[in-house]
Design a protein around this nucleic acid. Structure first.
Length: 604
RNA sequence: AGACCCAUCGUCUAGUGGAAGGAUACGGGACUCUGGAUCCUGUGGCAGGCGUUCAAAUCGCCUUGGGUCUGCCA
């Protein structure tokens, strides 16, 4: 519908006049009446953002294609570890179900006995549950449908749409043609239906060796889409399956199995990655040929493809991650530097942060490399809310408060969170000998250095103002051994009585009451934003950060001794830390750095 | 080379014919017992061209750039 310039002008003028006539109260009133959702909290808006898949779902709901139902699924093959890219897909698929009041299935796509193992089933279930998605009682296995899949294949043969081919792998490959030339038809293509039925049954019975025969769909050897050139439906694999044992010696190929699995489960939207785009015509073709009963087609799910997620300074492919593990650049698949779900769990990332991140990155068809800072933002956002604050000294420097009595000990009650009072208070002890962070003292500081230096006064957080009087050095090396300070007893709790201000506040630890722990500081694994984009004469291994972990002996508040592995804290001014769920023991407590605090000083 | 898919701030994204908005990152400022958090504010984009239209990020064509496809893997 087109409008002419004058009528547009008129409409705009009318609107402008109307808006100008409104008072602030009236606008508030209108907003309340007509757009109450705009006045709701921000979080909701973010989740309601459109993406192209949501548009498809809504179109289906309008036309009634699936009767208004939404049923999604996550179909991992149990042959590897899940990573952040899978978490993204799981979260978004699950979110569609939640959002539209539908269901979500966890289905193992276990159609290849050669590569799949039970241990991956367990680890994947654990990962999915940890992410906080609820598949209710729908923990499903493609292998449970093997009988049905076989029956469907028989149906295909009966309709003259599939045949048994005796050709070898090499011959089949040869005859498939190339992307620019059509293929040639197999000499076995026109066997009778009876012969095909017989042969297929004998394949199932185990009368043939691996590779001796395959079942192929009869489609079109000249189709520009290679996948439509008589694709293989079943191959012979004399191998034991992790769930069906030795019941089968023929196994369905992905394209045959996947759409039918979706159909059997009444999945409405089968969401997968972009490389399956060319598979969609085949996905649809298979389903279109099959009937539940005479004239009644089977359930037809809609396959929709989205672009995989990549993150800067990281490589998420199975192959590259395996290289890191096998090359011992990291310590196993659950190494806290790995973006596997197991690694992130150990690192201390929260499922909520991963979820918020996943929902912020919409499904699109455009390839993307997401800046790590976006992920980091969601991690910090969640941790800031949840983590109790604690004082730690990572790299200690000894400080003696010369005018503080030797035997004296004071206890300060300090808040566990600066803005969340419900987190309560704890007690910290203060004594004459303390540690501060080496970074918090500079003998010859630049002008904009807020922290401690000779003659300068700073606040020890929650305690006293101290002033640096003297620096004690090793006579041989010139290295700073300790510093001597005086404190102002009138500043107890950290406020001066005379209104005097200090520029800096630093954290500290009483050396008589500190708990020594191991702290593992992690950094990114790659030095290049996109390690896959290699320069001349280099391979992506050359971009591995050789300095991605450093281990410190540090001091923390003693009460942390009683905390469980997996507990997260903010070490004030240092970052967020978690007690390692694998290596930490009562004797040697190990903290992993989850992430640093933002640091606008360090950037300069 | 052929077929198919994709293209909005550095990055992630809204926008679907009627003044390109948000998030993050970055810069400035306020506040602060974390150089944190919070608040305010600034910089920054429709790949290019031609067409259709009163009007194009949006529709069409071309160019450019990127991706996918030649497993009895998924």
């Amino acid at each position: 519908m087109r409008k002419d310039a004058n009528s547009i002008k008129e409409i705009i003028e009318k609107k402008v006049n109307y808006v100008n006539s409104l008072t602030a109260e009236k606008i508030q009133q209108l907003a309340q009446d007509q757009y109450p959702e705009l006045l709701q909290k921000k979080e909701k808006e973010v989740q309601e953002e459109a993406d192209f898949i949501r548009e498809i779902i809504e179109e289906h709901n309008r036309t009634g294609r699936f009767g208004g139902k939404v049923h999604t699924r996550f179909p991992p093959e149990p042959n590897g570890w899940l990573h952040i890219g899978h978490a993204y897909s799981i979260n978004r698929n699950y979110n569609f179900a939640v959002e539209y009041g539908g269901k979500f299935n966890l289905r193992f796509d276990d159609t290849n006995p050669l590569t799949e193992e039970e241990e991956f089933v367990d680890s994947i279930i654990k990962d999915v549950l940890w992410l906080g998605v609820d598949y209710e009682d729908r923990l499903l296995f493609a292998s449970d449908y093997f009988d049905q899949l076989y029956e469907y294949a028989v149906q295909l043969v009966r309709k003259g749409l599939a045949y048994v081919d005796d050709s070898s792998v090499e011959v089949i490959r040869e005859m498939r043609g190339t992307i620019t030339e059509p293929g040639k038809e197999s000499p076995y293509r026109n066997r009778s239906i009876e012969e095909n039925l017989d042969l297929f049954e004998r394949m199932k019975k185990g009368e043939f060796k691996n590779g001796e025969k395959v079942l192929r769909a009869k489609i079109d050897m000249a189709d520009p889409n290679m996948l439509m050139r008589d694709p293989i439906v079943y191959r012979i694999l004399h191998a034991s399956h992790h769930r069906t044992g030795d019941k089968w010696c023929i196994y369905p190929m992905y394209d045959w199995a996947h759409g039918l699995e979706d159909s059997i489960e009444r999945i409405t939207h089968s969401i997968c990655t972009l490389e399956f785009e060319v598979h969609r015509p085949l996905y649809d073709w298979y389903i279109d040929q099959l009937e539940e009963e005479e004239g009644s087609p089977i359930h037809h799910s809609q396959q929709i493809e989205f672009a995989k997620m990549n993150l800067s300074y990281m490589v998420l492919s199975k192959r590259n991650m395996r290289m890191l593990v096998e090359g011992e650049y990291v310590n196993g698949w659950d190494d806290p530097r790995m973006l596997t779900i197991a690694g992130m769990r150990r690192r201390g990332y929260t499922p909520e942060a991963i979820r918020n991140f996943s929902l912020a990155i919409n499904f699109t068809k455009r390839e993307k490399i997401i800046d790590m800072s976006i992920f980091e933002h969601y991690i910090r956002e969640d941790l800031d809310k949840k983590c109790p604050r604690v004082m730690s000294v990572l790299s200690p420097l000894k400080v003696v408060i010369t005018n503080y009595p030797n035997e004296k000990e004071e206890v300060f009650s300090v808040p566990n969170h600066p803005s969340d009072k419900s987190m309560g208070n704890r007690e910290v002890k203060f004594t004459r000998n303390i540690y501060i962070e080496q970074e918090d003292f500079m003998e010859n500081p630049p002008e904009d250095y807020y922290r401690l230096s000779p003659g300068k006064e700073v606040r020890l957080k929650y305690a006293y103002f101290i002033k640096c009087e003297n620096v004690v050095k090793d006579e041989g090396t010139g290295e700073i051994k300790e510093i001597h300070c005086t404190y102002d007893s009138e500043t107890k709790g950290g406020e001066s009585s005379d209104g005097r201000k200090v520029q800096g506040t630093i954290h500290w630890s009483s050396s008589d009451n500190a708990l020594e722990v191991e702290v593992r500081q992690y950094d990114r694994l790659y030095t290049k934003e996109n390690p896959m984009e290699t320069e001349e004469g280099k391979e992506f291994k050359d971009y591995i950060n050789s300095d991605s972990i450093s281990i410190l002996k540090s001091y923390v508040e003693p009460f942390l001794k009683e905390k469980e592995p997996g507990s997260r804290f903010q070490f004030e001014r240092n970052g967020y830390y978690v007690i390692d769920i694998v290596d930490s023991t009562k004797e040697n407590i190990v903290f992993n750095r989850i992430i640093t605090l933002r640091d606008s000083w360090a950037k300069k």
